[in-house]
Design a protein around this nucleic acid. Sequence first.
DNA 1: ATGCTAAACAAACGTATGTTTTATTTATTG
DNA 2: CAATAAATAAAACATACGTTTGTTTAGCAT
Lengths: 217, 217
Amino acid sequence: MSDTDKISDDSQGTEEIPDPVRQETIETRKSKIVKKATRLFIKKGYAQTTMRDISKATGINLGNLYNYISSKEDILCLSFETYHDPAMEWFRREGIMDIEDPKEQLQTALRQMLIAIHDVMNDVLMMYRETRVLPPKFLKIVLKKEGDLIAIFENIIVRGVERKVFNVRDPFFAANMLVFQLSLYPLRNWNLKRYTREEFLALSEETILRAIVADNG
Amino acid sequence: MSDTDKISDDSQGTEEIPDPVRQETIETRKSKIVKKATRLFIKKGYAQTTMRDISKATGINLGNLYNYISSKEDILCLSFETYHDPAMEWFRREGIMDIEDPKEQLQTALRQMLIAIHDVMNDVLMMYRETRVLPPKFLKIVLKKEGDLIAIFENIIVRGVERKVFNVRDPFFAANMLVFQLSLYPLRNWNLKRYTREEFLALSEETILRAIVADNG
DNA sequence: ATGCTAAACAAACGTATGTTTTATTTATTG
DNA sequence: CAATAAATAAAACATACGTTTGTTTAGCAT
């Protein structure tokens, strides 16, 4: 029936070497499972998504799924990892922390985060909803990472306050509010459909900055 | 075993009258189920809470539960209703819409909403998480109510802009952002535990207003 | 007392779920 | 080509769930 979509570019491998080619297809397969499952989690919710759904969506046999992942819960954790890790990396890669002018620094970071979140809004919404299901140990890691992101914005704000470019009474609170505001679109999309992407980004940036920047005339 | 906690203040009733006393105990019972179930939904999530859990928590026999509620889903809907209806009523009862000065009007409404949400933060968090499970028809009602609340704030903002007390480019967007910001505490409580209730309320009010009021010197 | 109504209860039903196992096919190597 | 290992498919397993059923109990009117 579906004998046309078999993997055809398999290559030979030895037992000594971890077989990078085969390894890659396994990783590819795993990531395919996570990606497809994530779509289902988004659409139906984690609890309402069955392993049989995931099997059907990936085209991988039910029992065979367990050769790539260890449990349903495992898939959810992998799903979280997929989206949480790049966000933090981007800050270093883009050299945000090296920007001298605090206002430009904040603006750049803010806009980039808004764009990134806007593009994966469904995933963000899913994460907000399914956080509870994560095993406690993994939840701690996730919250730690989110805390790190907030801390970055806190540092940016603190520096801006020192230079009197920002006017913020409590930088930690402001950073928490700011990062929270980033999720406006994913969580309130149902009432914000009238805006184009660009309209929304501009309005968000403007509104968020106004609570921080000393004067924006 | 538990024969001591039987209802002992039963009174007689007729068939004509809907039996206010018995009726009351039935309503009491129903609301007890919803309240206890809500606590479980908050603690474990809707999907992870079983009817057997609810039976145990209420002390009402599993099968007997269905004399008071029609389904598990029904309980969730009732749970949403419990917290959604009072918020809207309060606006009318308190006469918020009659306050002349827009800034005072906004401040009053804002502070009251912050307090109300703070007090039921776990419930709000649960609602954010379990909205997906609601039957589509009921979901529409819930979103409508939330939209109405946003519209109220939009009106307040529009009036303030006309009087040049507020400086807002897009009142609809501002209202959406404002109402969203109200949920900061329920959704980000895990990172905001350092603040006392009063500290948090003051910071929230201050931050939210700054994005709207023309000048706050 | 007696019969009636409704609440209370234990047990069971049917189904759906995550996971494992078993049998079969496919590919690779000596 | 034979032998071995990996990949696949389907069925089975054990359990947990929401809901229903049939029966018992208790309160009230007659």
